[in-house]
C-alpha cells in the first residue's frame, strides 16, 4: 500500500508543473473572458441607450439579458476546458511512453522496484483520474466565482442570474462532465476510468508485442468496446424493448465491470510476463 502511494505521489510530482499551468490558464481565461465580454456587452448597451437613444427595453429585446450563458458559449470558457481534456488525453499515452523513450529508460527502474508491478499501472491510472477530478472540482469552484463576479460587473437590470445547474446546462457537454446527480457522476467517471484502463492495457500490449501489438491492441480496444455496448446491441437488435430501463442499466454496469476487470487483469499479466524493456 505505501508503495502504491509512493508511486502515486511520484507520478503526480512529475506532471505537477504542467498541471499548475493548466489550472492557471483555465482560471485566467475564464475570469478574464467574463470581464471582457461583460464589458463589451455594457459598452454596447451604453451605445444603444445613450448614443442611439434607444430604450432599455428595445436593447434587451435585441441583445437579451447578460447571463453566464454568454460566457459559457464563448471560447474563453470552453477553450481551456478543451485544452485540459486534450492535454490529459495525450498524457494517458505520455505517462507510459516517456518511461521508455525518456532519458535512461526509466521503466527499467520502475519495474525493478520491490513491489507488485500492478502498482505502477494502478498508480498511473489514479494519477490521471485524480487530476481529472481536480480539474472538474476547479471548474465547479470557478462557476461559483463567476456567478458572484457577474453580479459586480453587470447591473441588475441587464442581468439574468442563473442557478449553478442552469449554468451547467447552458454548456452542451457539461451534463457529461458535471452531471446533475451523484449517480450520474459515478456513471460518467466510472466509464472514464474504464476507458483509461482499456487504453493503458492497449499501450502495454503494444509495449509487449511492438508492431504486432499495435494491431492486437487495436483489436483489444474494439473488443472491449463491443463487450461494453453488448447489452445495447442485444436490446436494439435481438430483443427490442425486452429489457426495462433499470434492467438495461444493471446489464450495462455489469458489462462495464467486466471490461474494467478484464483490462486490469490483462495489464497485470502483461506487466509480469510479457513486457519488454
Amino acid at each position: 500500500m505505501t508503495n502504491f502511494f509512493k508511486l502515486l505521489r511520484f507520478e503526480l510530482d512529475r506532471f505537477f508543473k504542467l498541471y499548475i499551468v493548466l489550472i492557471v490558464v483555465t482560471i485566467v481565461s475564464q475570469l478574464a473572458g467574463l470581464v471582457i465580454i461583460s464589458k463589451l456587452y455594457m459598452r454596447r448597451a451604453r451605445e444603444e441607450i445613450v448614443v442611439n437613444q434607444n430604450s432599455m427595453e428595445s436593447f434587451l429585446e435585441t441583445y437579451g439579458q447578460f447571463s453566464l450563458a454568454n460566457l459559457t458559449h464563448s471560447l474563453w470558457f470552453f477553450g481551456p476546458i478543451a485544452l485540459c481534456i486534450v492535454s490529459l488525453l495525450i498524457y494517458v499515452f505520455f505517462i507510459w511512453y516517456r518511461d521508455w523513450f525518456g532519458k535512461n529508460t526509466f521503466i527499467y527502474r520502475l519495474l525493478m522496484l520491490p513491489t507488485e508491478r500492478l502498482n505502477v499501472y494502478l498508480a498511473k491510472a489514479m494519477t490521471i483520474f485524480t487530476m481529472v477530478l481536480g480539474l472538474v472540482s476547479l471548474q465547479i469552484v470557478l462557476i461559483y466565482l463567476e456567478m458572484n463576479l457577474v453580479r459586480l460587473l453587470v447591473p441588475r437590470d441587464f442581468r439574468l442570474d442563473l442557478t449553478i445547474h442552469e449554468v451547467i446546462r447552458s454548456f452542451d457537454y457539461f451534463n457529461i462532465l458535471i452531471p446533475d446527480s451523484f449517480l450520474g457522476f459515478l456513471i460518467s467517471y466510472g466509464t472514464g476510468l474504464m476507458a483509461v484502463f482499456v487504453l493503458f492495457t492497449a499501450i502495454l500490449i503494444e509495449r509487449s508485442y511492438r508492431l504486432k501489438g499495435v494491431f492486437i491492441g487495436g483489436l483489444y480496444v474494439a473488443a472491449s468496446f463491443f463487450v461494453f455496448i453488448s447489452p445495447l446491441i442485444l436490446s436494439e437488435i435481438f430483443l427490442p424493448r425486452f429489457f426495462y430501463p433499470i434492467e438495461m442499466f444493471l446489464l450495462e454496469v455489469f458489462a462495464g465491470l467486466i471490461v474494467m476487470t478484464g483490462a486490469i487483469w490483462l495489464g497485470y499479466y502483461l506487466l509480469n510476463k510479457k513486457i519488454r524493456v
Partner: peptide, 14 residues
C-alpha cells in the same frame, strides 16, 4: 502535500 491537498480538495468540493 500535493497529493493530500489535491485529494482533499476534490473530495470536499465534489
Amino acid at each position: 502535500w500535493k497529493l493530500i491537498i489535491l485529494t482533499a480538495a476534490v473530495i470536499l468540493i465534489l
